[in-house]
Amino acid sequence: MKLDSIHSRILNLLQKNARISNTEIAKQVGISSPAVAERIKKMEDLGVISKYMAQVNYSALGYGLRALITVRAFMGRLKPFLHQVKSYKEVINCYRITGNENIVMEVVFENQQHLEIFIDELITYGETKTQIILSNVVAHHPIDKI
Rank of each mutant, 00 (worst) to 15 (best):
I6G: 00
V107I: 10
M1G: 13
V56M: 07
D120H: 13
V91M: 02
L46Q: 15
F118H: 00
K41L: 11
H7E: 12
E116P: 00
V107C: 10
A37P: 00
I119A: 08
E44Y: 08
D4E: 06
A54Q: 11
E106M: 07
H114D: 12
V85Q: 12
A35W: 03
F74Y: 15
K16N: 13
I10F: 01
I123L: 11
Y95M: 11
H141Q: 13
T124H: 14
I146Q: 10
E110R: 10
G30Y: 05
M1R: 08
R66Y: 03
M105D: 01
I92H: 00
T70L: 08
V56S: 07
N93L: 14
M53R: 10
V108Q: 02
I92S: 04
G126M: 04
A60V: 09
Q112I: 09
V56K: 05
I143F: 04
E121Q: 15
M105W: 00
L82F: 07
N93S: 15
Y58V: 06
H7R: 08
Y63F: 13
Q84Y: 07
K2N: 12
H114N: 14
G99E: 10
E121K: 15
N111A: 09
V36Q: 02
N102D: 15
G30P: 03
I97W: 11
I10G: 02
H141V: 10
M105R: 02
K27W: 08
M1P: 05
K145L: 13
V48W: 01
D120R: 15
K86V: 12
R39W: 02
V107D: 00
V56D: 05
S135V: 11
L115Q: 01
S87F: 10
A60P: 03
E116G: 06
K16C: 05
V137H: 13
A139M: 10
C94E: 05
I123M: 09
A18F: 10
F81Q: 06
A18E: 13
F74S: 06
N111D: 12
G64I: 04
M53I: 08
I20G: 00
I123Q: 14
S50H: 09
E90Q: 14
V56N: 08
M105I: 02
V108N: 03
F118V: 04
I117K: 09
L11W: 01
R19F: 12
A35N: 06
I40D: 00
E44K: 15
H140S: 13
R77W: 02
Y58R: 01
L61H: 01
A139Q: 11
D120L: 11
D120M: 07
E38Q: 12
V138P: 03
G76M: 06
T130N: 06
T23M: 14
I132Y: 14
S5C: 07
H7M: 07
G64L: 04
R39N: 04
Q84I: 06
I146N: 09
S5H: 09
Y125G: 01
S8W: 00
